[in-house]
Structure formats: structure tokens, C-alpha cells
Amino acid sequence: MALKGFETILAEHPVFKGFDHETLSLLAGCAKNERFRPGETIYNEGDTADKTYILREGDVAVEICCPEKEPIIIESLHGGDVLGFGWLVPPYRCMSHARAVSAVRAMSLDAQCMRGKCDENPALGYAMFQHWVPHLAVRFRALRLQLIDVYGCEVA
């Protein structure tokens, strides 16, 4: 019953919706339900990136810590967003802090389980690459816009 729920969530998500039923059920085997209270840390920078999350409800602040300063929120994520990319790239470390701003409900996908399935089945690995890269490209594009600080020197 729980697996069926995960499959449906994956099938409706933009990153996974192109996968066939068989692949979705394979990936659903790596899924788990997660809940975080407001203010709770989801992960810290440098932690092992052993999961990636599909947020179902609630808001998450992605933060970067600056020495002797308050952390800066660089991104907020909300229902439907994917949290955590560290699992894709060795040495599989979290690249920022993530903190629940409100009560968060999420589905996590176990990184080792996902990587293991991709190693066993290169076609799945390639399909994962094809589906994750466009998503990453959108995030990188947004990051570039953030980086150039468009409003920093604007007049109107």
C-alpha cells in the first residue's frame, strides 16, 4: 500500500513522470516518508548526502553559513520541489544546510539504494541522467541570475 503511494507521488513529479511503471516501482523501493518540525535541521553542510527529498508540503530554507554572521538563506523550497543534489556527485556530501521553516512532509529517496539500482541497470542510470539534468539546468540558470545580483545596481 505504502509503495503504491510512493509510485503515484513519483509518477506525478516533473523529474520522474517520464519513467515507465516498472522503473517507478523500482525507485519507489528506495522511498520513505519523512516529517520535520518547524525549525528542525534536515541536514547540515558536509553531512553525508544519503538522501534526496521530494517535498510534499511545507517550506524549507536552504542556508549557507558565513563565519561570525547569521546564515544567509539562499533558496527556499516548497511543496513539489526537490531538496538535495549532493547524492549525485562524489564524495556525496551535502552542499548547504537545510532547515524546515514550517512543518514539512516529504518523501525521501535513499541515495545508496538509487545509485545501486542505477549501477545494476545502466539504462536506468541513463534515464535518471536524462531526467535530472534538465531539472538541474533550471536550478543553475536561477543561480546565475542570483549571482549577478540584478537588483544590486538597478535604477528602475
Binding site: D59, E70, I72, I73, I74, S76, H78, R99
Partner: peptide, 13 residues
């Protein structure tokens, strides 16, 4: 584009 903790709205371009 960025905020300090305490801001509960959206952060992102």
C-alpha cells in the same frame, strides 16, 4: 534573492 533567518517567505529568483 536572499534573506536572513526570520524571513519565512520565498527565497529564489
Amino acid at each position: 534573492d536572499h534573506a536572513l533567518p526570520g524571513w519565512t517567505g520565498r527565497v529564489g529568483v
